[in-house]
């Protein structure tokens, strides 16, 4: 009865009382704070919001919020969220996870979620490392990173480009933010939730434990992008991207995916097709 009490919900009202498992200094603290702030700005009733995630450090995030949540299995946050949104179009559905969860084991779902363009807001906390399993290379890791025992000489694999893939596959809202600049991140989350269609919010969120050099992100990021509905322009910006440009890259007008409604019929009318 949040709305009836007429009390304005604060960011704190969207937070649970659980203490995150994250390391001190993790970028994800700022992300949950920004999400709570955005939800408070939007004043969405808590019971009408669901937060879905997969597995990984950042995927712990739903339990730290005070909305409905689903902490699923590794890589499958987007299918769970898609199913929920199709079955319950009245719910506001947020999805969160990391770069391993979303772009490696869940890579196929990511591509197809962009294609489907269901009205979901997908927040990826990208730190270019598997943190929960103690520091392996992820799809966005630089090919020459030698910090992992699993690939001590580096991966020598071209890093995954989430924004290029999203734009190619048909996502209708694409942005990038930095966890160290929470105001911009909060604004993007509000815009993403308000956008009707699939919103990808790519958040550079440093892992201070396994990638301490990412502390330097704060000096590298530069707010640069302004939304365009022109895909050619968006692609050109991506071709010039150093990986640290922030802002809303693209916002298109493709209507969100919604299943068709049918002409109502009773079960007896449906069964009649089998009568001899």
């Amino acid at each position: 009865m949040d709305m009836l009490t007429a009390e304005k919900l604060t960011a704190q009202d969207y937070r649970s009382d659980l203490k995150p498992v994250w390391c001190p200094g993790c970028g994800d603290y700022a992300v949950i704070a920004a999400i709570a702030k955005a939800l408070a700005e939007l004043q969405l009733p808590r019971e009408d919001v669901a937060f879905v995630s997969g597995i990984g450090c950042s995927s712990r995030i739903p339990a730290y919020s005070a909305v409905y949540g689903f902490h699923g299995v590794h890589g499958r946050a987007l299918p769970i969220a898609t199913g929920l949104k199709m079955a319950r179009p009245d719910m506001t559905v947020l999805v969160a996870g990391g770069d391993g969860d979303g772009f490696s084991i869940g890579g196929n779902h990511f591509m197809h979620a962009c294609r489907r363009n269901a009205d979901l807001t997908y927040i990826v906390m990208d730190n270019s490392v598997y943190g929960m399993t103690k520091g392996q290379a992820s799809p966005t890791t630089e090919p020459d990173w030698e910090g992992s025992k699993l690939t001590p000489d580096g991966t020598h694999i071209t890093p995954f480009q989430p924004l290029e893939i999203a734009l190619s596959a048909g996502a209708s809202f694409i942005s990038r933010a930095f966890s160290g600049k929470p105001a911009e991140l909060t604004r993007q989350i509000c815009e993403g939730v308000n956008h009707k269609g699939f919103s990808l919010i790519h958040v550079l969120s440093p892992c201070v434990t396994f990638r301490p050099e990412q502390r330097a992100y704060k000096d590298k990021v530069h707010e640069e992008w302004r939304p365009t509905a022109d895909r050619t322009e968006a692609f050109q910006k991506l071709m010039a991207d150093d990986g640290f440009a922030t802002g809303i890259l693209y916002q298109g007008t493709k209507p969100p995916f919604r299943p068709e409604m049918g002409v109502p019929a009773t079960i007896a009318e449906i069964e009649a097709q089998f009568a001899v």
Partner: peptide
């Protein structure tokens, strides 16, 4: 409604999501 999934990993998780929704 029925939706076509990209694979069986998606279809099973999609119905988990739909059922979570009641």
């Amino acid at each position: 409604c029925l939706i076509q999934a990209e694979d069986e990993l998606a279809s099973i998780n999609q119905i988990i999501g739909g059922s979570f929704g009641g």
